[in-house]
Write a protein that binds this DNA or RNA. Structure first.
Length: 786
DNA sequence: CAGTGAGCGAGCTTCCGCTTGACTT
């Protein structure tokens, strides 16, 4: 029936395009790839020239059969997946899987979803470019080889269920090495000298900073001494114009960075909010590496700017992508309709839309013009000078709309304000000079967003994988997103005022961090292991190098299987030899010394459940019964196998510890999966943060136990005689229903839980059980495939 | 979000890129 069938990658795109094309065209979506290497098998036939074994994954079967049906009746099939490596491969897989025929199949591409672009594409079809497809196959096969050969090495040598890959392992490397830099960093102190002057009018204040920092305290004092009797005069005034240009429109990576800085979104959060905006038709596609805008968007932006701000605020700008490995299949991320200033949606959606709109608009606005004034103040008898700088906005231009944030909110105290009017050779009255000891900053830890920026710079990962990769390396527990407490540091302030030099000490907290990516022991050990054995794959330029090969394949200059062969011939023997190494000790294992009690060696290493300390070695590994079992104790949170000392490790074996006796039952303290706890009479009580299981006293324990008993007593809100398994309880987050080991939420509509009748409770349980039964099954299945 | 509280020798784990859903513990 249908004359034309168009297949695109995204359903939201399909919907839009269908409107442009009219009733002779049916538009369907492939939902990304429809075929891939098998998920659980290697699926590459090394013996037969790396032939990949493709299969339609189970969750795509239904879709593929629907597509097959539609293909039967279509006169012409238009493959309209993206114009990049993956898009070309998607078209090819569709062609192969759906059994399409060359005579009625057309390959079309467009970079923007506008009516003109699509009509033009229909008029200029081409064939599938098999060279580009082969470049994708090379990419796919290489990633499979690296991932599926390296991961099992880790299972064997470090810990089960770990993973390694071209992208994730290098991402972890960045974080591990940054942490190492931080550990090795020693800060240097120097004095920053500022002065307050009064102008000849006797009232106007001028603040200035010395043109260099002074290292030694003695030199500071000598300098201040020399200032006691010195004269200060304006020696030079320079003003020069400064222009600032707006930032280009958003790509996935820059959107993630700005949303993190300005809105506090996580990378994953940004993507899910953007997805909803895209599906609602408010923005263009959110996974893109292009800064390009369509002609119609440029026009719409121009109109909006002229209307809202006036013609002199408008400047047409075309941006060009310079990031490594960009494939530019889409436009930049922009509002679908630039004239639309407000959208309906959640608060998050509105904020992100607003950010995207302002960034897009600002990018088409005039430069901001500023005037930067620098005043130089001479000190008699001294070659140093005080400098005051100020900036005045002459024309705000794009700054009217948007100001890009930067990552380092470090000392930017001075230099942006307006300076008072001064005259050359004015004599100034010095009120006070202050020298404050400042320290050089250690390198910053990565945030999710700054890691994405670095990944993009290195060309590793793609817009669609930044967020998932960050999830993966956290999920594998290579890195954690967490806080670090700062340490107190005292610093010195020396002032000169009224010809008197005074010195005082102040304290500041330094090195504190919030929500930063920090490597775990597992991450560090795996990284060191991979760096030691597979340096080529871990090289920051590995991806950039093979991308060149992929480009050559796409140009038809290189045969993809030969490129893979060249890599495999070097890589695989290394995997074999590393696997064959019979190591006495686990990777990353460290011997701390000997246990004074038993005389046995003490180790720390990565165990089955994470970092663990061990006393003694397993003897007679062949005879399990005669084998002497070593003692184990998990490391505590905050401890690391790299830095733990023998004494700290030995202390771990003090647990579980008998604290004393209470009510005829022993009280023990230990550390469990959920932190430190005390055990008494079959009850578990968590130990709060300010107490420690090693030092907790019987009195403190008893207090905790009594509190717990009291809380448990108040826990029961209601019980039913007819149904002893059913209880209404009070939890930390309000009342809930417990029935047969399962918990149920009480609907918000219920004002007084204690007034619930048995029938009502049964109804709540029945309602809750109705749906989930199926869902829980599906959920566990889904998790396994992840 | 609710309560949970071990152990270090037998099952399976894993890659990167395209896409959305249908999951709520």
């Amino acid at each position: 029936m249908q004359k034309n069938l168009v297949i695109v990658e995204s359903p939201a795109k399909a919907k839009t395009i269908e409107k442009f094309l009219g009733k002779d065209y049916k538009v369907m979506s492939s939902y990304g790839h429809i075929r891939d290497l098998k998920a659980k098998e290697f699926s590459i036939d090394i013996e037969h020239n790396y032939a990949p074994e493709y299969a339609v994954p189970t969750d795509k079967r239904k879709l593929v059969s629907e597509l097959k049906n539609e293909v039967q009746t279509a006169e012409t099939v238009w493959l309209a997946s993206d114009e990049d490596r993956e898009g070309e491969a998607i078209s090819w897989h569709l062609y192969e899987t759906l059994g399409l025929k060359p005579e009625n199949t057309r390959r079309i591409v467009f970079h923007e979803i506008t009516k003109n672009a699509i009509l033009h594409a229909i008029e200029t079809p081409r064939n599938i470019n098999i060279d580009i497809v082969n470049a994708q196959q090379a990419r796919r096969v290489l990633d499979r080889i690296v991932g599926f050969e390296l991961s099992p090495v880790l299972w064997k040598k470090v810990k089960p269920a770990l993973s390694a890959g071209r992208v994730q392992s290098v991402s972890v490397r960045l974080i591990v090495e940054r942490e190492r830099e931080i550990n090795e960093f020693t800060s240097e102190a120097a004095f920053r000298v500022t002065a307050n002057f009064l102008l000849p009018d006797g009232t106007t204040l001028l603040k200035a900073e010395l043109n260099k920092r002074i290292k030694e305290k003695a030199a500071v004092i000598a300098f201040l001494e020399s200032c006691k009797e010195a004269a200060f005069s304006i020696e030079d005034i320079t003003t020069k114009p400064v222009r600032k240009s707006p930032a280009p429109p958003f790509t996935t990576s820059t959107l993630q960075q700005e949303a993190a800085r300005k809105l506090g979104f996580s990378v994953a959060q940004t993507m899910s909010v953007a997805q909803r905006l895209y599906e609602a038709g408010f923005i263009t596609y959110m996974r893109t590496d292009s800064v390009n805008l369509s002609e119609s968007a440029l026009e719409a932006a121009g109109e909006a700017i002229v209307k809202e701000y006036g013609a002199k605020y408008h400047k047409l700008r075309r941006y060009h992508t310079k990031s490594k490995g960009a494939q530019e299949a889409h436009e930049a991320i922009r509002p679908a309709y630039l004239e639309q200033a407000e959208i309906s949606g959640t608060a998050q959606e509105k904020r992100l839309y607003d950010l995207i709109r302002k960034r897009t608009i600002a990018g088409q606005m005039a430069d901001a013009e500023l005037e930067r004034t620098t005043i130089s103040i001479a000190i008699s008898g001294n070659t140093e000078k005080f400098m005051a700088t100020g900036e005045v906005i002459v024309f705000d231009g794009f700054l009217q709309v948007y100001h890009e944030s930067s990552d380092d909110e470090s000392e930017k105290e001075q230099g942006n304000g307006i300076l008072p009017a001064v005259n050359l050779h004015d004599i100034l009255h010095m009120q006070q000079i202050e020298a404050v000891e400042r320290f050089t900053q250690r390198p910053p830890r990565y945030t999710e967003a700054s890691l994405v920026r670095r990944m993009e710079e290195l060309g590793i990962g793609r817009p669609s994988t930044y967020a998932p990769t960050i999830q993966t390396i956290q999920h594998r527990e290579y890195v954690v997103k967490s806080d670090k407490e700062g340490v107190k540091r005292s610093y010195c302030i020396i002032t000169l005022s009224e010809k008197v030099i005074k010195e005082r000490k102040e304290e500041e907290v330094t090195g504190a961090d919030r929500n930063k990516l920090i490597p775990t022991d597992v991450g560090t050990v795996v990284n060191n292991f991979l760096m030691g054995n597979f340096p080529a794959v871990m090289d920051y330029n590995f991806t950039a190098g093979i991308e060149k090969e992929f480009d050559a394949i796409a140009e038809g200059e290189l045969i993809w299987t030969e490129a893979i062969d060249k890599f495999y011939k070097v890589f695989h023997p290394i995997v074999d030899s590393v696997n064959a190494l019979r190591t006495e000790h686990k990777v990353g294992e460290r011997e701390l010394g000997t246990d004074p009690k038993s005389g046995k060696p003490v180790f720390v290493k990565i165990g089955r459940f994470g970092p663990v300390a061990q006393i003694g070695l397993a003897t007679n590994p062949d005879d399990k019964k005669a084998a002497e079992k070593p003692q184990f104790a998990s490391l505590m949170k905050g401890q690391s196998i790299e830095t733990i000392t023998l004494a700290e490790a030995l202390k771990l074996f003090d647990l579980p510890r008998t604290v004393g006796e209470y009510g005829g039952e022993t009280v023990t303290a230990a550390i469990g999966r959920f932190g430190p706890f005390i055990r008494h009479n079959g009850k578990f009580v968590s130990i709060p943060k300010h107490l420690n299981p090693h030092t907790i006293t019987l009195e403190e324990s008893v207090a905790l136990i009594e509190d717990k008993i009291k809380a448990d007593g108040e826990r029961l809100i209601k019980k039913f005689e007819e149904e002893p398994e059913l209880e209404i309880l009070k939890g930390r987050y309000g009342p809930y229903i417990a029935f047969q080991k399962k918990n149920y939420k009480i609907p918000k509509a219920v004002a007084e839980p204690s007034a619930l009748t048995l029938e009502e409770v049964r109804q709540i349980i029945a309602d809750a059980d109705k749906e989930p039964a199926k869902k829980t099954v599906r959920k566990t299945a889904a998790r396994k495939t992840k």
